[in-house]
């Protein structure tokens, strides 16, 4: 976009660059296009040798109706919304004060704590699933919503991202707030968080996308269909109801992915600003 405007499209380097971008973009997009395409095709056309995006016979209504009625897809979606909201809220609630302490307060052991956050950042979450499963069993929350939420309440990534952003806020603002009479917690919620809103929204999107799509932990943590988030629901749906009925399956997948795409597109401006804000400011 802006690169082509400033450098021109004519040079071979620009053409190569755009070709690479187009190919990468296509590779990422093709499965989604295919998914949407399959979701509107009748069963007979799905395994046709030749590929066309638009079906000869439009079967979308049947597929989507089946997806929405044969399995409790709306229920899965609501589960997903509830769990993701709880996770994001809890994460911001925990990460913002922690990040404020790491960015702006002086206390012994601060660097050690931050190093531990960084180490936690490196660990893949799957490594922790067995201990978390045992912990969940011990405190008796397995197979509840709490089981889906509690492992994610403390997000090292969130702490790290907020800390970096808080560090760019001048100390004078905090000093002024202290003189104005704000307590440390009030400084976090009334000054730091509003000022870091782009970073928090960016983090929120990351978090929602990650947990909306997460399959691994819900697979371990819940068995009750009424608690399942969308991806797990789809899996259950595939096994039990649909069998090899790919049309409705793809329709369900499309329905599950759509909210994320809509949310991302509408918050895109914030997202980019949040990830680069600290650097540009």
């Amino acid at each position: 976009m802006s690169t082509s405007a400033t450098h021109g499209l004519g040079s071979p380097a620009a053409i190569t660059r755009h070709a690479i971008l187009l190919i990468t973009g296509a590779l990422i997009l093709i499965p989604f296009v295919w998914m949407v395409s399959l979701s509107i095709k009748p069963p007979g056309e799905i395994f046709h040798a030749s590929f066309s995006f638009w079906p000869k016979q439009f079967y979308g209504i049947e597929n989507y109706t089946k997806a929405l009625t044969e399995a409790p897809l709306p229920r899965y979606m609501l589960n997903g919304v509830f769990v993701c909201t709880m996770i994001v809220a809890a994460q911001v609630l925990v990460c913002a004060p922690a990040a404020y302490a790491l960015a702006k307060l002086e206390f012994p052991g601060k660097n050690l704590l931050f190093a531990m956050v960084l180490i936690a950042l490196i660990l893949p979450h799957e490594v922790l699933s067995l201990p978390l499963f045992i912990l969940g069993y011990q405190i008796g929350v397995l197979n509840t919503y709490a089981a889906l939420v509690f492992p994610y309440v403390v997000s090292p990534f969130g702490i790290f991202l907020f800390r970096q952003f808080f560090k760019t806020i001048p100390d004078d603002v905090i000093h002024a707030a202290r003189l104005d009479g704000l307590s440390e917690l009030a400084i976090v919620w009334r000054i730091m968080v509003p000022m870091a809103l782009p970073a928090i929204i960016a983090f929120g999107i990351f978090s929602v996308v990650g947990h909306w799509n997460s399959l691994f932990w819900p697979l371990i943590a819940v068995r009750d269909q009424n608690l399942m988030p969308p991806p797990l629901g789809i899996m259950a749906f595939k096994n039990e109801e649909a069998g090899n009925d790919y049309g409705p399956l793809m329709a369900a997948s499309t329905i599950v992915v759509a909210p994320l795409i809509i949310a991302f597109l509408s918050a895109q401006r914030w997202f980019v600003e949040g990830l680069t804000g600290g650097a540009v400011k």
């Binding site: 001048p170 004078d172 603002v173 000093h175 002024a176 707030a177 003189l179 509003p194 000022m195 809103l197």
Partner: peptide
């Protein structure tokens, strides 16, 4: 009971 004016003004931008 002191008030301070800072070099950077330190206003709350939001």
């Amino acid at each position: 009971d002191v008030a301070m004016v800072f070099q950077s003004y330190a206003l709350y931008p939001h």
